[in-house]
Every structure is written in C-alpha cells, then in structure tokens.
Write a protein that binds this DNA or RNA. Structure first.
Length: 487
RNA sequence: GGCGACGUACCCAAGUGGUUAAGGGAGAGGUCUGCAAAACCUUUAUUCGUCGGUUCGAAUCCGACCGUCGCCUCCA
C-alpha cells in the first residue's frame, strides 16, 4: 500500500509546537502508548485516552502506514503513594480481594480488553506486561549503573537525576524548582529527593518479587515503558502517547532512563491527551469521582460514548455528564440514520452525478484536512454533518436514478471515514456492499408485507408489526425513499 | 509557592491575524406525513471572561486583572 499524500501535523509536547509528521523510517510508524495499571475496572478517563489514540492509529493506517502499536499492561511496580514508598497497587488489590496478584492482573486485564472491545477500540499489536520483562529491566538497570546514571543503596537502585542534563525538558521544570517545590520530605536513602526508583527491595512478605543482582525485589514503575518501547519499537521511535498527568514524573523519567542508557534520542513525538472531568474536576481513581465503562454502557450506547469523546479534541478536557452524553447520542443517531438509508438503497441508474461526486470530494478534503491538523476529530465530525445534509438532499431528489459508480464512491467514503477511521458505525453497518444474510431477507419480507397492509390502510396491523419489531430492538422508519430498518 | 492549560450562544464544541464566528444538542416556526420516526427549510452570539495595548484589521498577538482546571505525590 502506498502512502497517501501526507500532510499530517502533530502537536509535539516535547517542542510545544505542531510539527509535520514524517516517520523515522519511510512507510512505517512505531507508536507506544502508556497502558493501564490493572488493579481495577477502567473508567471514562481511560476510554478517552485509548479512543483518542485508537483514532490516531486508525488514521495513520488509513494514510497507508504500516503501524506497530505497542501498549503496555502495568502489572507490577506501580506504588500506592508518594516518593517511591507505599504498597504496590496490584499487591494491595490482591490482598483486598484475597487473590494471587497475578489473578488480579489477569482479571482486570481481561476486563480492560472487554471494555475496549465494546468501545470499538482496536487492540494494540503488542500488549507487553511489565512482569514479563524483568530480565530486560534488570539489564537496563545494569547499563545505567555502569554508565554512572544509577546507584544502589541497600537493595534499592535509584536513577540520579542530576547526572542527566535533560531531566525536566518535557515537563518544563528545572531541578532547582523541583527541590523547592517538594512537599513533605520523606525519609529516604536517595541522594537527591528527585531521584526515582529503578529497582525496589522487596520485603519477604511481598508477593511479587524477582531475583536480581541487588537481591530480591521488583522494578520501578517508569522502567517498564523505557524497556518495552525500546525492545519492540527500537531505541528511537516515532510517537509516544499518554495522559497529560503522566508527563511528570513518568514520561520525564522514561526519557532520562532511555536516553541515558541508549545514548540516543527516545520518542520523537510526544502526544498527551487531556482529562475527562466531572463538574470541572478531573475524573480520577484517587478522587473516587469516576464512572466505570461498565457502568456507563448500562445507560448509554458504547458508540455514543465513543462519539461523545471524539466530539472534543484530544488535548482538551472533556466534561462528562449524562445530559451531554444523551445529546451526543442523538447526534450520532442522525449519522446512523443517513448511513442506514444510503446502505439500503439499490443503485440502478447509469448517469454519473458530477455535482454530487464533487460534494464527496469536498467532504474528503474537509475531513482529511481536519485530521491532518493534529487529529481534529470535532472538525471532522462537523464536516460529516455538513455532508450528510448534502446526502439527504441528494437522496430525496435523485435516489431513484443513482448510478452505481456514484453510489460506490459514497459508500466507500462513509465506510472509510465513519467506520474505518472514527469507528462510530455499528456492526450491522459494517458490511456495506450488499445486504446479504437471512435476516435481511426476512426483514425485506416483513417490510413488503407491512407496506401492503399500509396500502390497504390496515394501520392496526402494520403498526403492530412495527411495535413488535421495536420491542425486539429493530426499528422501522418509513421514509420517502422507502422503509428502512436498523437493529 | 513553581510550571502549564483554559474561559466562544441555553448546553456541548471548532475556529489561533482578514469576506456573513463551523458543527451537534435544545428551543421556536414551517414543509412533508395515516400515525410514529426521520428528513428538509427558516430561526436563536454585531460578538468570543474583563480592561488596556500592538495592527489598516484581533476571538486569534502582547500585558494586567478576574475565574476555572491540571501537574509539582498514585492516576489515562
């Protein structure tokens, strides 16, 4: 597949500028996104992050790039509280649920993928686990010690931030500021309070521990991302994504570890997505104001949630409320209604409708211009609404003489954009080409019979058909172009 | 205290120097319709937190102020 004309610009958090995106290796893109720590069900904040990056990956693929998308599963080393102290989050959850840590990890990893599947988020190509990469992490620590960037104290190994001159370049901080900014100082064996743990010594009761040159212990949180991104994408790679709140210290530390160990630049583009808020306040696990995805889909359709999230830019905060989601749901239904109509018509005419083909081209340009501009999905959606207005007008005067070519152009653009890139069409719309399958035949039969009844003005029976179908989740709408159904 | 972001209609949300300030939801009026739903048309910000400045020209750049939020401690 060849690369389409590439005019993609991405806002790079590292340089604080929109930059033209040109991958390191022609035609290939490596992207790493910080994945979840699997100690609880995912919430809408996760949904925003992973849906946003899903569209990034889908768009890059649409442009013709061969994309390798790596997203880690953090299953060890993520500590409960400040300054590298406190209990491991997974271990704590295991204690609470009276399970093995790896059972906790397994349960919530499955739960995470279930949620992502239902939100139509494509799976990463590789989902490496921290606990599966202990030898690599130990090796990296050894390299860092050898090169003088890390030191061991009584079974703990720390990264010496003063040894790495670039520390703070991503988050825009200097070490001096950090010293002054430190809150309550924790007693610690660190040489500098800003140093962070690469390896933590495990107490004998600790459930997760591995042998290392420094005794039994477990890796620090930041290390896994450095290791696994390097292993699967190379020491320098194209895009690193994650939540804004992880810029510091997590991403800053990743850069320090990787660049110190490899002596090469780390990620070229850093993308940070913004937060979901509730009444203006960040939705977060520690605040307890979160709505899990599993709860959200009880009240709203998964695609409406996805569409709602894509309705604001990934770098903007998104305030969640049930009302806002309901409004989004209506907007999405409008899109679905038009797509359903389009997919139900049978092109018979021969003429090529140049005027309408031109509208399709206008839409293509607007849609792609929007995504080329730092994945501006709200603008792409606005362009879609402009276009569906055009489609509706076109359908009402020309549907009977639609040419197959024009129809094909229309169907393929809808399929590429709404299903392929934005991922907001339901499964029933995915096979756009021909209506095949038993259900379609049965539905056609019912619709034909019902329309016969309507002609005979037997509305009691025709309404009963519609009502009973509605009760089993199939909607019939009588439009000027004929009756359409969707489930 | 330090670093950073944001403030656009009733609600959500694009737009970051130049003709009439996108789009969605909600509201109002109309066309269509057996009904329902949808669709279509019209309509709802002389104005972009406030006050100054730069400019021929600013929502867009600069400054101050007010307000909200994020990070500096785990969080997508």
């Amino acid at each position: 597949m060849s690369i389409k004309k590439n005019n993609l610009h991405i806002y790079n958090s590292l340089t604080r500028n929109k930059e033209k995106f040109i991958p390191l290796n022609p035609g290939v893109v490596g992207i790493y996104v910080c994945g979840p720590t699997v100690y609880g069900d995912s919430h809408l904040g996760h949904a925003k992050s992973y849906i946003s990056f899903d569209v990034v990956v889908r768009y890059l693929r649409f442009l013709g790039y061969k994309v390798r998308y790596v997203q880690n599963i953090t299953d060890v080393g993520h500590l409960q509280s400040d300054a590298d102290e406190g209990e491991d989050k997974i271990a704590e959850q295991a204690r609470l649920e009276q399970l093995e840590p790896m059972e906790v990890v397994e349960n919530y990893t499955r739960s995470y993928f279930e949620d992502m599947d239902i939100l139509n988020v494509s799976r990463p190509d590789i989902s490496p686990r921290a606990s599966g990469h202990i030898p690599e992490q130990i090796e990296m620590i050894e390299t860092l010690i050898k090169k003088g960037f890390a030191y061991e104290v009584a079974g703990n190994v720390y990264f010496a931030v003063e040894k790495f001159p670039g520390y703070g370049k991503l988050s825009g901080r200097s070490l001096n500021e950090m010293k002054e900014g430190h809150r309550v100082e924790v007693q610690s064996d660190k040489k500098n309070p800003s140093d962070f743990a690469l390896w933590k010594k495990a107490e004998p009761v600790h459930l997760m521990q591995w042998k290392s040159p420094w005794g039994k212990g477990y890796p620090g949180w930041h290390l896994e991302c450095s290791c696994m991104s390097g292993k699967y994408l190379g020491e320098t790679f194209d895009i690193h994504g994650g939540g804004m709140e992880n810029k510091f210290p997590h991403h800053e530390s990743e850069i320090a570890q990787s660049e110190a160990a490899n002596e090469k630049p780390f990620a070229r583009f850093w993308m940070h997505n913004n937060m979901v808020t509730v009444d203006g306040v960040k939705m977060g696990k520690s605040l307890g104001n979160f709505t899990t995805i599993k709860d959200a889909v009880k009240k709203h359709s998964p695609l409406a949630i996805r569409y709602f999230i894509l309705g604001s830019h990934y770098r903007s905060t998104l305030d969640f409320s049930s009302d806002a989601l309901a409004a989004a749901d209506k907007g999405l239904q409008k899109i679905h209604a038009v797509v359903s109509k389009v997919f139900n018509i049978q092109p018979t005419g021969k003429e090529i409708d140049h005027e309408f083909e031109n509208e399709i081209e206008v839409y293509k340009k607007q849609f792609q211009d929007a995504l080329d501009d730092d994945f501006n999905t709200p603008r792409a959606i606005a362009a879609t609404f402009d276009f569906i207005k055009k489609i509706n007008t076109w359908l009402s005067d020309k549907a009977d003489k639609v040419s197959y070519n024009t129809y094909e152009s229309l169907v393929s653009v809808l399929r590429d954009y709404l299903n392929g890139i934005l991922g907001i069409l339901p499964d029933t719309f995915k096979q756009a080409e021909v209506n095949v399958g038993k259900l379609d035949d049965v539905m056609q039969l019912l619709i034909d019979l019902r329309n016969q009844l309507r002609k005979e003005k037997n509305f009691a029976l025709s309404d009963e058909i519609r009502d009973r179908l509605s009760a089993i989740g199939i909607t019939i709408k009588d439009t000027p172009e004929g009756s359409v159904w969707e489930s």
